[in-house]
Computed example of a mutant assay.
Amino acid sequence: MHFLSKSIFALTVVSSLAFTGCQQVVKQPSSTATVTAPLEGNNTDQQQADNQFNLQGKIGVKTPQQSGSAFFTWQQDQENFDIQLTGILGIGKTIIQGKTGQVTLNSSKTGLITAESPEELLERATGWVAPITHIIAWVQARPATIDAKIEKDDAQRINQIDEDGWLVDLSYEDHETLPKKLILKQQLETGKENRITMLIQNR
């Protein structure tokens, strides 16, 4: 698979998306006071109940080596998901589907790839190891783990999440409680960064 398609795939497979298998991460110190994220009322059952949404938008990926963008549709129903990517510089449509115990990726360039989890699929397709399921929480304006550090805006909405080597900035429109835009940044030891920008056009 071409490096660019690998990058876009790796950074969109329901992603917490980290390149921890490629390069050692340098944790970013927070510039303002942060608090450990309380997962209020977020037991496993509650999180699963919240994991149901439909998103449409555009994702951009920029690494020290490559950059590119794609349009996406993402349907999440508890543990099941269906993600379709189009417009990846002529690569064509890529379909990523998952259910408990099985995740598949299918495109004209890669054929069908099957794994037991999104993380395993990512590693198989790209060689990268990452906790990619975090993005399910991030697009819903919540941290994925109790170890995350968060900041809130004046309306008490989470506008920054520092988690597992990624700094996630969330932007909102007007009084909405779910983010319209997410910028995910990972600092590298070289001083450069990997950056993902997700623009959510419809929910």
Rank of each mutant, 00 (worst) to 15 (best):
I183N: 01
R157P: 11
L105C: 09
Q76A: 04
G98T: 10
T177W: 06
A155R: 07
Q46P: 11
I135A: 11
M1H: 09
G68C: 09
L4R: 00
I150W: 01
L170F: 12
D154K: 12
G90C: 10
K192N: 12
V129K: 12
D77M: 00
V139T: 04
A49G: 13
S108F: 05
L188P: 12
E151T: 15
V139A: 05
M1N: 08
K62I: 06
I8T: 13
L11T: 11
I200D: 02
I150Y: 03
K99D: 02
G87L: 11
Q65H: 05
M198W: 05
E163A: 05
N43E: 07
D77Y: 04
G101L: 04
Q23T: 02
I183V: 15
T190I: 15
E151H: 11
K181N: 15
L170Q: 10
T100F: 14
R157T: 07
M1G: 05
T44F: 13
G191L: 11
T197N: 08
W128E: 00
W128V: 05
D169H: 02
Q66K: 05
N54Q: 12
G191F: 15
I83P: 00
T34A: 13
T12S: 14
S117W: 10
W138K: 08
Q28A: 02
D82W: 11
V129R: 10
P131R: 09
E189C: 02
P118T: 04
T177R: 14
G165D: 00
D82C: 07
S15F: 01
L11Y: 06
D154Q: 14
Q201V: 15
Q76C: 01
K27N: 14
N43Y: 12
Q24S: 07
F9I: 07
Q156K: 13
M1A: 03
L199I: 14
L170D: 07
R157L: 01
K93M: 12
K109C: 07
L17C: 09
S30E: 12
K149L: 10
E79S: 06
W74N: 01
T126C: 09
V61Y: 13
G41N: 03
G165L: 04
A144I: 15
V139E: 01
Q47L: 05
T63G: 02
I113K: 02
S30D: 06
I200M: 09
A37H: 09
T32V: 04
Q76F: 04
H134C: 06
K180N: 13
T36A: 08
Q97E: 02
V129D: 14
Q78F: 13
I59C: 04
A155F: 13
Q76W: 02
F3I: 14
G60R: 05
V26S: 10
G60T: 01
A155N: 14
D154T: 06
G87M: 13
I8C: 03
E151M: 14
H175E: 14
A18F: 12
G90R: 09
L4S: 01
D45V: 03
T73M: 07
T190V: 11
R195W: 03
E40I: 08
P179Y: 09
Q66Y: 09
G92D: 08
T197M: 11
K27C: 00
T145I: 09
Q84P: 11
I136N: 11
R203A: 01
A49Q: 03
N80Y: 05
A125N: 09
Q76V: 10
R203N: 15
K192A: 12
V25W: 04
Q47F: 12
D162K: 06
I136G: 01
F19R: 03
T104E: 12
M1R: 07
V129I: 15
